[in-house]
Simulated scan of single mutants.
Amino acid sequence: MNTKIRTLAALTAGTVVTVTMLSGPAFAAGEPTESTFSSAEIGAIKAASDPDPFTAKEIDEARAESATKDKRLGIAGGVGTLDVPPPPPASSYLADNHVAQAYSNYCGPATARMTLLHQGKNYSQATLAGRFGITPNNGGTSWDAMLSALKNLSGVGYAGEFLAYSPSAADKASYKSRLQVDISHYRDSIAGNVWEVPNGPHLTGHPNKEIFHWVNIRGYKESGRYSQVQDPATSVWSGVPANSPVDSDKLVVMMGGRGYQW
């Protein structure tokens, strides 16, 4: 994958809504949110307003990397060159190791810390922020910086999966297959890069505005229908739960235009 560094907008309580025609009232704190737009409409909004889109070459390279990992792990018809995992149980969870982000823009370091802790690797938010090239309340964690940290610090073969602005049914199915195998068999958690738009689906407790954000995904239930999300933004908005089950299809829509690292 191209190592071009792209810095995403920081998560802050004052994030500017870039699609002003869609601005609306804030959702009630702690209340799950429902989208007033279809996945296709949300995708169109993102495509029209992406501040730094990935190139087709970058997307193709990352998807090829994920497809290679699928084959290696025996997912979706892969040959399982490592070992073929047994059928996953209906639910599985890794340890609750929630970390609140230390500063408004430290969702990346907090997510990386949680993800690495699941491999027994203990890195502070400050150390990870230094690796990511950000300082308190200044800068955001890039996709490439996160993936590099997970690949090089975890001892696990992480791959990045970019998602279309409007993820397909196949994208949702692939995510759920990878989620179940990663969590139940390999005991690895996932770093999700969400992009919430006004009046689209939001994580619980997030205000109704445009937000770029990193979260840790540490489990699932109902055979992947719901993902267990650890949200580091508990220190930013009072209504954000440390852990919550999120409909996986909606989570994939929220990650559309960015993706997840697994």
Rank of each mutant, 00 (worst) to 15 (best):
N2G: 00
T3C: 15
T3R: 10
I5M: 08
A10M: 13
G14M: 11
G14H: 11
V16D: 15
V17K: 07
V19W: 12
T20P: 12
L22V: 09
S23G: 07
A26F: 14
A28G: 15
A29E: 14
G30L: 10
G30Y: 14
E31P: 10
F37L: 15
S38Q: 10
E41D: 14
I42G: 04
G43C: 11
G43N: 15
A44V: 03
A47P: 13
S49V: 08
D52T: 08
P53K: 01
T55N: 12
E58A: 10
I59Y: 09
D60V: 11
E61F: 02
E65I: 03
D70F: 03
D70P: 03
D70H: 11
R72N: 05
I75F: 10
G78H: 14
P85R: 09
P88H: 07
P89H: 15
A95V: 08
A95P: 12
H98V: 02
Q101T: 06
Q101P: 06
S104Q: 15
C107S: 10
P109Y: 00
P109W: 00
T111H: 08
T111C: 08
Q119H: 11
K121V: 14
N122Y: 11
Y123D: 01
S124D: 10
I134N: 01
P136Y: 07
D144I: 09
A145G: 02
L147T: 07
Y158R: 01
G160K: 04
E161Q: 14
Y165W: 05
S166R: 09
A169C: 02
A170V: 00
K176V: 08
L179Y: 14
V181A: 09
D182P: 01
H185Y: 06
H185K: 06
Y186T: 05
Y186E: 12
S189Y: 02
W195E: 04
H202M: 14
L203G: 00
H206Y: 15
P207H: 07
R218G: 03
K221S: 14
K221R: 15
S223M: 12
S223F: 14
Q228F: 04
G239L: 04
P241L: 05
A242I: 02
S244W: 00
P245E: 09
L251K: 10
V252K: 08
V253R: 01
M255P: 10
M255C: 14
R258H: 01
G259N: 14
